[in-house]
Amino acid sequence: MTITIEGLSHTFTTPTGRVPALRDVSLQIRQAEFVAILGPSGCGKSTLLRLLANLLRPMAGHIALDGLTPAQAAATKRIGWMAQHPALLPWYTVRDNIALAQRINPQPQRAVPAVDDLLALVGLSDFASAYPFTLSGGMQQRAGLARTLALGADVWLMDEPFAALDELTRESLTLELLRLWQTFRPTVLWVTHHIQETVRLADRVVVMSRRPGHVHTEKAIGLPRPRDDTAPDFQPLVRELRVALAAQS
């Protein structure tokens, strides 16, 4: 799915006044491109994903997902959105949570990852029958990730999906996730504030400015995959992004 964002602005009205979240954001994302969005807290990264997932209406500007508006795209059930907090249904087991996502989002034309494979991928095979409230925060986030991947969507809109994970889990999940991405070729928007992670994952990193957020820098990551943190080209990219980010914090 290709995504075109032009002149996108959004402002929230709160009891204490109007809070601008995004200002004049323009982005072009190619089919099957992995784009990481990096920015300080409150720069409107989550708002951008919500606008794409049709959970908010843009106040100005234009979004096209394969030429469709977000509302039209949502109706095709090809959007996979994952919030920062996994919001699992507490009354269903982990497996039922994931299976329900597939049931509500059937993809008759395409193969989707099997629930058990996803459980194995996020390391929750032993917890398939557990209820979410018995899991740690990190495990819940992994279950939420599995649920989003289960949709078999054409675009993954991921809002800090690794935030609650420890470093080792992050690394192993990174590999698995990329393997899945290479199999199903979705377009990915990956919001994070973890610089290392963007260099590990993305084809391109978009650095956003402080609120109201807009695109500050775009940086293509040309490293071959699989990537290695200790490769000589890796750390300079991390350093460069850190400098760009620091200018916004």
Binding site: L55, A74, W81, A83, A87, L89, I104, N105
Partner: peptide, 22 residues
Amino acid sequence: EPALLEVFRSWHASQRELFRHV
């Protein structure tokens, strides 16, 4: 909980599905 509603809205779930599961 709005977070649960958002997940279902992002799936473009029907009112019936929302009612029954959430």
